Simulated scan of single mutants.
Amino acid sequence: MPFRLLKPQVETIISDTTKSVDERLLSICQLLESHLEYYNWVGFYFANSDKKELYLGPYIGEPTDHTVIPFGKGICGQVAVSNENFVVPDVAAQDNYIACSITVKAEIVVPIFKDGKNIGQIDIDSNTPDPFTDKDERFLEFVCTKVSEIL
């Protein structure tokens, strides 16, 4: 499904105040995973800046042992430090990659900012090599902006 058709669905999920924040975040994960065939694991991590750790929030996909990630460790941990999107076309080529599953071939992580501070991120794993484009980045930036409105 094209991103332009997913954007209004993301906005509808975000604006549904009858659901908790975690329920809305899980709904976003489900929406993306079910409508984008190369999004095989979709989840949110949130920062604890005092401890310099990321904590796993709502997600959809295979269970993961990586519920706490130190800043700087893996792709997610690097985004917590750099404050920049990180697109990994081939996870096998990354020295600082935390393997979640042998089926994962690529990853994209986009930070969530609230009042100018990096408070978390959306993390997407793909079992397809090099699937992410600039359009994925722009769409996920949109998602993160919308998510920041309810955090």
Rank of each mutant, 00 (worst) to 15 (best):
L54G: 13
F86Y: 11
Y97L: 03
L54P: 14
I98Y: 00
P63E: 13
N85G: 00
V81W: 02
V81D: 07
Y97W: 07
G72E: 06
P58L: 06
H66C: 06
P89E: 00
Y59G: 13
L54T: 13
V91F: 11
I75Q: 04
H66N: 15
V91Y: 10
A93P: 05
E84V: 00
V81I: 09
T64K: 12
V68R: 13
T67Y: 04
Q78R: 08
Q78N: 10
G77Q: 07
E53N: 15
D95Q: 15
G72K: 09
V87S: 05
A93T: 01
Y55G: 14
D90G: 08
G77K: 10
G72R: 07
E62G: 08
G74K: 06
G72C: 08
P63A: 13
I98N: 00
V68E: 11
I69N: 07
N83H: 12
V68L: 11
N83P: 00
N83A: 03
L54D: 11
L56V: 09
T64S: 12
G77S: 08
V91A: 00
E62Y: 12
E53R: 12
Q94V: 13
V68W: 07
D90L: 01
P89W: 00
T67S: 13
V87K: 13
P70L: 10
K73C: 05
I75N: 08
Q94I: 10
E62R: 11
N96S: 01
F71V: 10
P58I: 03
S82Y: 02
I69E: 03
A92R: 05
I69G: 10
Y55M: 12
A92G: 04
F86I: 04
G61F: 06
G74C: 07
H66W: 14
Y97R: 00
F71G: 12
E84F: 02
V91E: 02
I75R: 05
G74A: 05
A93M: 14
N96G: 00
G61W: 09
D90V: 01
D95E: 07
C76V: 06
Y55L: 13
T64C: 07
F86R: 04
A93E: 15
N96K: 02
